[in-house]
């Protein structure tokens, strides 16, 4: 995005902290993954952190966020702590889903995470249901549907957009478009253009999903409109998936240009360039996050495994 950003120092640093937490946690997961301490398939979102941070910084705990299988980033941005996340990945009772969910099924209702689903597309409908609950109860919360580009091939996506539009429901549709359905590029899996289709149902905005400030700005406008009763909105966030669909390895079919594609590099360059933060400060943030991850892993490692009797309860 070329338009100039205006942002406070505090907001910029908070966005950065969220993105760095996601990045560093993801890198740690990737590093530990081959040791099999996490017996669960992981879908990492390295390269996509700006979408999570830029949007979730506008959401409140009461807003209901429904995720797909690529959960870690938006879950952390919405408020899920490192301890319950890592404990869940380690399969422990202290995990956010008590060891029953794993990476793809994260749960933290106090922070507006009523659950996530590993079947592409379906959780979009649940977010619309949350919007319906808000409308029927005349309450001020949103349903947020979070899905990838491939989910727009699923019928449930259109059924959901149609119903949300018909009833003017307070729902934010977030399409985190990393261009791939597993290893299938969009040119192979979608004959449609996502924005054109979404516009049939609701106001739709495209945003550079590797630019945290642009995403934050676009999400702010969309969410404000929804909260004012303007009905559903669609954010199409284009981004890049640096890792393979699943697992700890780098993706060999996506070319990454660190200058152009790295959301953290971009925001840090902006904060330094505009004098909002120093290099030393940013390094300090990274160190603090690393310590928090160490703590979460120590917590997870020391936590008990579920006992088999729980399956009979």
């Amino acid at each position: 995005m070329t338009r100039p950003h205006t942002i406070t120092r505090e907001r910029g640093l908070r966005l950065l902290r969220t993105m760095r937490t996601i990045r560093q946690a993801s890198e740690r997961i990737a590093a530990l993954y081959p040791t099999n301490v996490m017996e669960t398939p992981v879908h990492l979102c390295i390269g996509q952190e700006a979408v999570a941070a830029g949007i979730c910084h506008h959401l409140q705990d009461r807003d209901q966020l429904f995720l797909g299988h690529r959960t870690h980033g938006p879950a952390m941005a919405k408020g899920l702590g490192l301890r319950p996340l890592f404990a869940e990945l380690y399969g422990r009772t202290t995990g956010c889903s008590r060891g029953f969910g794993g990476s793809m099924h994260l749960y933290d209702p106090e922070h507006g995470l009523p659950g996530s689903s590993a079947i592409v597309g379906g959780s979009i409908a649940l977010a619309v249901g949350a919007g319906l609950a808000a409308q029927l109860q005349k309450q001020d919360f949103l349903g947020v549907a979070w899905f990838g580009d491939a989910a727009t091939n699923a019928g449930v996506c259109y059924e959901s957009m149609n119903f949300a539009a018909l009833r003017g429901l307070p729902v934010l549709f977030v399409c985190e478009d990393n261009g791939y359905s597993n290893v299938m590029p969009k040119s192979v899996h979608s004959a449609h253009d996502i924005e054109t289709l979404a516009k049939v149902f609701m106001p739709t905005v495209a945003v550079d999903g590797t630019d945290a400030l642009a995403t934050f700005a676009a999400a702010g406008e969309a969410i404000a409109s929804i909260r004012q009763g303007g009905g559903p909105r669609f954010l199409h966030c284009q981004t890049k998936r640096w890792m393979k669909h699943q697992g700890h390895e780098k993706c060999d079919i996506v070319t990454v240009d660190r200058e152009r594609d790295c959301p953290i590099h971009k925001l840090e360059a902006f904060l330094r360039g505009s004098g909002l933060a120093s290099g030393a400060e940013l390094a300090q943030t990274a160190c603090e996050i690393e310590a928090a991850i160490d703590d979460a892993i120590a917590f997870a490692s020391a936590s008990p495994f579920p006992t088999p009797e729980l399956l009979e309860a």
């Binding site: 009523p114 409908a125 649940l126 977010a127 249901g129 319906l132 609950a133 059924e159 119903f163």
Partner: peptide, 25 residues
């Protein structure tokens, strides 16, 4: 006011009902 008709979208409407059940209804 608490009886809602829906489009022929049974799959999504089931998810809508579930989402509403998870959101206080």
């Amino acid at each position: 006011d608490r009886v809602l008709g829906t489009p022929i979208s049974e799959n999504a409407m089931t998810g809508v009902a579930l989402g509403a059940a998870l959101s206080g209804l």
